[in-house]
Design a protein around this nucleic acid. Sequence first.
DNA 1: TCTGGGGTCCTAGGACCC
DNA 2: TCTGGGGTCCTAGGACCC
Length: 404
Amino acid sequence: MQRIIFHVDVNNAFLSWTAVHMLEKGEKLDIRKIPSIIGGNEEDRHGIVLAKSPIAKRMGIKTATTIYEARKICKNLKVYPPEYDFYRKESDIMYEYLCQYTPVIERYSIDECFMDLTGTNYLYKDYLKLAYKIKDDIKNNFGFTVNVGIGENKLCAKMASDMEGPDMVHTLYKNEIECKMWHLPIENLFMVGKSTSSKLRSIGINTIGDLAVASPNRLEKYFKNNTMFLINSANGIDDSPVGRRKSKTESISISETLKYDVSDFDELKKVLFRQTEELARNLRDIHKYATGVCVMYKNSSFKSYSHGEKLNVPKNNSIELYKDVIRIFKNSFKGELIRNIGVRFYDLTSVRQVQINLFNDNKEEKESDVDLIVDDINKKFGSVSILPASLKLIGKSERHKKTK
DNA sequence: TCTGGGGTCCTAGGACCC
DNA sequence: TCTGGGGTCCTAGGACCC
């Protein structure tokens, strides 16, 4: 049976959503129509471009470059801060709206969904019409625009929605791959990033079409097991299912760029404590336990490190996890200046195993109970209501706000 | 004034066991 | 004391996505 997959992608999501929010609050200016970006706080060294308006894009401003660079390109650029809580709400609204069309839906990111409409032709006679309806409904009801891509698999649907925008519907069926996709530069292919594209270009493969007809033998040397994946992608071949992405290494993490580089162990410990506490609370919220703990950090030259350990017993107790985090960090930390630091809990499980310890007097049980009570209080009165007295924050005086 | 934050997946190499 | 090879698990690092 022919599969029918839609990919719905919010145009310049963060910027569009901020524009909607501003208009709702009575602002006259629509920032989608001027050279503007959403960017992090430069003083806190979070100063990169998170989203750009179409005009800013045409001027050559790219996502993830520094705001400083963006300003060099456009002198009168307007910069607005992100509003993640609002974005999450808008994302939920769109997701709920889309759910009415199919139960097989995957939230790929905060601003993208895949929908599997295979076998629904008795409901929807014309998929192109349906795509236009979805696009127009979202625009008229929620105030932001989307691109809808239609294809016979996720890859093609995604490549289709990446074509011209905003507020457009594109198809990329099998018989369109050659004429619509092959002329595109290799960087445009989904899952081809900087490293892969520079390798490909170095051997004379410059377009998706070049890759599509390349000999696997020739590429094997450079891309090993990834070779056929790349060639298949260039040919629009992909059989991955729409649905929740499953993986055995499911993980949650938190990290932050410090306001200034820090080499003092005690100061870094405080950051790690705050992060561990917050992440452990997230674990408890989703009723999971971590089987692996990892500390990752970047030094002032941006070299990154990650050090982790599998635990004997899955945990979600803040203090217990903090002990693991500090032990791991202590063993690897060489006293360098640290720019960015974070914690990851991985191999999450729903099953709790309590280690039998005759001499422990249920200490862990008691600590878990305390965690739950503290979580409860923090939920009621704000997330900083209860924190350990030792926790003096470095950098800004306010607590780093979790943004996503 | 260079370079955010949250994810997933893959791989090389080492440890360990049989 | 010297030693193969296969399998599995773990760790560190990197690539890619948004």
